[in-house]
Design a protein around this nucleic acid. Sequence first.
DNA 1: CGGCGCGCGTTATATTATTACATTCCGTCC
DNA 2: GGACGGAATGTAATAATATAACGCGCGCCG
Lengths: 164, 164
Amino acid sequence: MPEPMQNGAFPAPSHDHDRCVRQAVAHAEQVCADRDLRLTPIRRRVLELIWTNHQPSKAYDLLEAIRGEPFSTAPPTVYRALDFLLDAGLIHRIESLNAYVGCDARHVAGSPMFLICRGCDRVAELPGTGVGKAIGRAAKRAGFAVDQETVEISGLCGGCADDA
Amino acid sequence: MPEPMQNGAFPAPSHDHDRCVRQAVAHAEQVCADRDLRLTPIRRRVLELIWTNHQPSKAYDLLEAIRGEPFSTAPPTVYRALDFLLDAGLIHRIESLNAYVGCDARHVAGSPMFLICRGCDRVAELPGTGVGKAIGRAAKRAGFAVDQETVEISGLCGGCADDA
DNA sequence: CGGCGCGCGTTATATTATTACATTCCGTCC
DNA sequence: GGACGGAATGTAATAATATAACGCGCGCCG
């Protein structure tokens, strides 16, 4: 069973976050092993850093974070790792924030949608199933062939709404 | 009656584009008059430039475009005009492209969704009604209060799919 | 062993956007 | 009409995000 969640989307403040990180890294190892991809030290480290919390990470903050570690701190270092992780489906880019979050794989198939809380700055990933269908219908009506869906919703998560 | 459209979304190649521009500017004038906003020369010019075609405009391309016109060509000039037009609801920002398109107001109420053709680089704005409902349901289940919806779909429009 | 491809380092530069402050324009109030 | 005040614009500098181009080293595979 996963950790307790507020309605299955945003993790409860008390959740065992180390476990999120461990699971994410283990999942990444599995994926890379299965698909013959190389989870190099830099790539693994960037993935860990992204999973430091449930807030989206900015590329240049990741760069800052690896200062002092034995990696280059020039921008291409982190952008290359991000590209790899994006291609591997291990992270997502949040377009409206120019930032990156770990893929929590709860959506499994289909395009996810993202809930972005402007209170705590966390992002939750939901299965975009119903939304995807509605998009498909609208696109079909317009004679449009869908490649990729970007669905990013800003607002307040349950916890932050209670605080307000 | 509006110009002939391909399924009501992407304008036909033959459409009277000057008319799009004239309508957009007239609408902007109306909106600004109604709400006591000032459609200054720069703002009007930027709006016209954005309506030059149905492709999204980049901020620095707009800046280039006003070279030689009696406006400052420093970035804040165009960003301020864009902010004004965004606030007034006269244009939209396409997050996944860092670019701006004219609001065609066909959506009327509710959040629009955008179809972005990777063939011709045009963007169509659709009413996001069905999608918005699906988003609302998913958000409610997650205990999330929605402020703003960003729905951007990439793919191929009818015309470009036929070409392929 | 030789070549090839991938990952990484490095430098430079491109692209997108904002901050801060000075100046000008314009309507309002006296 | 003149003084004030707020909005709009000009200007210079800089911040934030992202990519291009090139070379090196290492492991794999013939």
